[in-house]
Design a binder for these strands. Structure first.
Lengths: 209, 209, 209, 209
DNA sequence: TATGAATGAGTCTTCATTCAT
DNA sequence: CATGAATGAAGACTCATTCAT
């Protein structure tokens, strides 16, 4: 009698697939016209579904956008390269660590450039909520960087008087700018060159002397 | 009608004053609610004028916002400290140049933080036009920095193999991030500290060895 | 498949049960939120059935409501107390007749108060059709009352110049008002008191002198 | 004034006049189609104004309806005939009082029958709020009637054992029913006849013996 | 110039109903 | 018969802009 609560796994999969389809369509549409320039009509046209179907999977236009933002932030938070985690490390590895970290980050950003651009260019202008979410996210990243810098200080790779707090922000800003300038466009970026410049700059920047 | 002279006395002044009044109101309103969250009704309420009056001075909501953006960009482009312009300089001055430049920039940004925040947080999400305008603006800034770096290279302050192109972006990014993090908030920023960290980082970062 | 006989045993019973289940759920739901404030989703949630199942048993939301109305009107038309029907009666019985009639009516209304409230409060606002149906129904009741009054006139219980037509409406209105005021609420009504007041009032009201 | 037809340039009306115009149009429209069957489009078409103009004067469709209800209730509460108020009265005046009261009430109801029908037929089905408002309103009326009946008791016009509480409801119901049956239609009602029947019925009904 | 009432195209969202499984 | 995902017509409300005074 009762629809037994949840249904077959197949149904769930289908449901999930439809959700993905809508998210993909929304990403395309938002990337084209921005949040405010994109209407639900655009999204459903792109997804080739009916209006009602859209609202079967998302509560609102704002909701789909939020889902995309969440996904983007999740991707970003996930880029922590495996090698960075082991806390014990020899001084000579500093360059390798930085190089690996930056390469991974830049590649991930480029790989998901549509999502990233949405996050960077649109999210702030929509909602105080997104602003807060982003601030929080950057806070997490900043914390990670600060810890790395402190670790470098312990190992003597970074000078003792380094202002890790502010320098952490500087590192964040450098990546952000590179992303905006080189990673969002259609042209394939020369990531090794970017990493070279970044690492050369930062290694010296944090070093004593 | 009036004397065909150079000055347009009272009428224009009044007109100009009204325009300023509206711009000020718009800045307040937009800062509160963002571009899309702010309605013409909010602006005219803030300015205490009638609806029609608004359209007597600006063609559209978009137009006022553009005027604010133009003003912001003009302020930014204008911060070139007088001392930097003379192209001939001795090597020992590098630190002084950087220090002065960054201090001026950061102070200017903080001074006009409402305008700046509008530019950084809102402009991108409104219009492809603003995106282009910003890109262009950052291009100019980038060019300036690149020239300074090249100059430093000539003088031997910066290593010869420095990737001035990319490093220019890095410098831009650092300032942008500092602005967002420390200059937009209500708390009075510790600009000297920021400048210290910036200059110490950059001087080493661009130096050889 | 089944024996081609006259009766359709289990299947139809099951079908009928399902219909009842939906009607009961609809009554609950409509009573909670009114016709327009109740969605098919509410009804099927209450009935714990799937959307499609609902439309297997009723053509539309309007249709279920109509079924509830029909049921309500049937209940009302059915309250004619057995004793009233025999047309020959002695004058002394007038009070007994009225008392019995009113008691039965008021009790029935209270017993089915959810259905009744639906009829009184919602039906009119939905459809001209329901308005007509109600008018017709009240017409039938009015006719019954008029006949009773005329009978009372014949027997000398009611004065000869009584405007039976209008007075019939008055009687109808009195019951309606009592229903709305005392019978629809959660509090158990003091039906004897209501009947007392009604009968005392009406007997005198129709009497000569 | 308002467009004679379709293409008359709109006139700037005084705020209050425009509000009245919309209320009148809404009354017409709602009377035609009921609350739920009437769309804002119908109202503005009837008023020959633009959509926005409607929302310049009323917050919502619900709001106009509420304004009509308020107006209706105000009219009803205002029908208290002047003669009833003086609290000292001679026994012989009872009939005159009732007659005057009922006549005024019935005439007022008929005069504003469109508003009244809206109140009686639509308001309940829209909102719990309206139900409460109506209950309250009827409460006031009931109170008035009860006081009159008590006054009659004091003067010996009404029997001492009269259940004034319930009888007050009966009186209310009688009027309501007459309104619905005779006063809402297009046909001109024979109000004197209704009053005669009412008064004859009630005077006897409340009297002793 | 100033005013503010009026305009109406634009959009999101709802929800009764259908239909493939 | 049962299910519930999908449909899409419908409708309320917004708000930038215009224009008569």
């Amino acid at each position: 009698m009762a629809a037994s609560g949840k249904s077959t796994p197949r149904r769930l999969l289908k449901r999930e697939a439809r959700r993905e389809q809508i998210l993909a369509a929304a990403l395309k549409a938002f990337s084209r016209g921005g949040y405010h320039g994109t209407h639900v009509a655009d999204v459903i046209a792109e997804a080739d579904i009916a209006r009602g179907t859209f609202y079967l999977h998302f509560q609102s236009k704002h909701d789909v956008f939020a889902a995309l933002v969440d996904r983007t932030l999740a991707i970003l938070l996930d880029v922590r390269p495996a090698g960075e985690e082991p806390p014990v490390r020899r001084r000579a590895d500093a360059e390798a660590i930085l190089r690996a970290s930056y390469a991974t980050v830049l590649e991930t950003i480029h790989e998901h450039r549509q999502l990233m651009r949405l996050l960077f260019d649109e999210a702030l202008g929509i909602d105080k909520g997104f602003r807060k979410q982003l601030d929080q996210h950057f806070g997490v990243w900043h914390e990670r960087i600060v810890q790395t810098l402190a670790f470098f200080q312990e190992r003597g790779v970074a000078r003792a008087d380094l202002d890790v707090e502010v320098t952490g922000q500087l590192a964040l800003g450098m990546v952000e700018r590179l992303a905006r300038r080189y990673l969002f466009g259609a042209r394939k970026p020369d990531i090794p060159r970017l990493v070279d410049a970044l690492v050369a700059f930062e290694l010296r920047g944090i070093a004593g002397r």
